[in-house]
Design a protein around this nucleic acid. Structure first.
Lengths: 225, 225
DNA sequence: GAACGAAATTAGACGAGACTAAGTTTATAG
DNA sequence: CTATAAACTTAGTCTCGTCTAATTTCGTTC
């Protein structure tokens, strides 16, 4: 059996690995977990002993084939919980992350399967991230352009927004931006500000470029049905 | 903040205190928690330091006025979860205890309040135990006779069954015994066997006297409406 | 190719919560 | 009133996951 903390490390490694496609560095993991580097090193040794990660000293870690499904299981729990909290328990978009982060380690697979069933086996969570199936298949590994990749004048549909920053989520929510929202990019400044026009018709919404780069968005070109 | 383990101790003390109305002994608590006695003593010191229990060395512990509401909060979480798992997630009667025992420490009060709302603020859990309100009032402190307190020929309604023993619950469930079931006591043997006749009309159900004493049941006399 | 700085690891300690072994206290029997 | 058994506490150790301080390795720059 794995502790909740070990599970958290595996989840973090999965995310970071997904982002960069390289071995995950000790320092990156330490920052992401909010601990000091030696704590990471010692945990990596324990996980490596159980054959959940491959640890190349001084070079970083990556999940093994044993570790990946465990990470995916936790991610499935997390995203199903987020969906359930918003859809069935009237949670606000910005509130779900912390609750799901705690509960993901403590619900059984039976619990996860039951809420998946009630939700009709949803494909994505409220932030647009794909939910692994019960067999731990995960779609749309990582594809896609971000808001920052488009030009002024482009019309795009928001696909995914990051789920960690509650303040950002509240801001986006207040301005009507969710996965599925269609927006037009009306301005990109040299000092890193991206301005959007909502389809709905409110006043434009400005975002720092760093934020724009964390939001996935797909072109609304006519050929893609 | 309290650890999940500290919460478990407080809950256990509450239950045991409720049963006997005396200070709870170290040995009783050790057995209930599945640990050795010294572990209990050292935990009692920590809880006493935080003024959650009053510990009289060699004599036992009792919850303080600070400790009681914390125990009640956890019991509220537990019983609401049991109700929710059976009513909304199709859990079997016998399956809910373990899941609730883990989750009770990790759900927020917000989560508890939301599921309470969805359930219509139920008064009792699936085993008939009262659920504390959001204000932590708990009804029906402990009253009531058990199956073993009645005579042959008496007709009674089952009120509460213990929730810890999954095998017993499965057995009772298979024989149609739930809170609310009306039964007649048809035999009490000298060697400790109690036999019941179900209102429904199936064949009689036999229980050891020890079990009968753990099941609350109220007389179906005509005067109590 | 040597030296330096950043990153990682090793070494050693600590708090939580458990354990075993050893010593106290309490209660009960004679 | 004393002896003794049971219950309880104290003392000391262990594992887990963290920390700080000290050391080693890597990669790059001159």
């Amino acid at each position: 059996m794995l502790s909740a903390i070990m599970e958290d490390y595996l989840k973090a490694i999965y995310y970071l690995q997904d982002e960069t496609d390289e071995r995950v560095r000790t320092s990156t993991l330490a920052e992401h977990m909010g601990v000091e580097q030696p704590s990471v090193t010692s945990m990596m040794k324990k996980l490596a002993e159980r054959d959940l990660v491959h640890h190349e000293p001084y070079k970083g870690v990556e999940l093994t084939d044993t570790g990946i499904p465990i990470a995916l299981e936790i991610i499935r729990h997390h995203r199903l919980l987020e969906r359930y909290l918003t859809d069935h328990l009237e949670y606000d978009w910005a509130e779900v992350h912390d609750e799901a982060d705690r509960l993901e380690h403590h619900i059984s697979n039976q619990f996860a399967d039951r809420i998946a069933e009630q939700l009709g086996d949803p494909a994505v969570d409220p932030h647009g991230d794909p939910i692994p199936t019960a067999e731990l298949d995960i779609s749309a590994p990582k594809c896609g352009e971000t808001l920052a990749d488009h030009q002024v004048g482009d019309s795009v549909r928001i696909e995914r927004v990051p789920d960690e920053d509650a303040d950002l989520l509240r801001y986006l929510s207040e301005h009507g931006i969710h996965p599925g929202t269609e927006v037009e990019i009306v301005e990109v400044t040299s000092f890193g500000m991206v301005t959007l026009d909502l389809d709905g018709g409110d006043e434009p919404v400005a975002l720092p470029e760093k934020v724009a780069r964390s939001i996935s968005a797909q072109s609304l070109s006519e050929d893609t049905s």
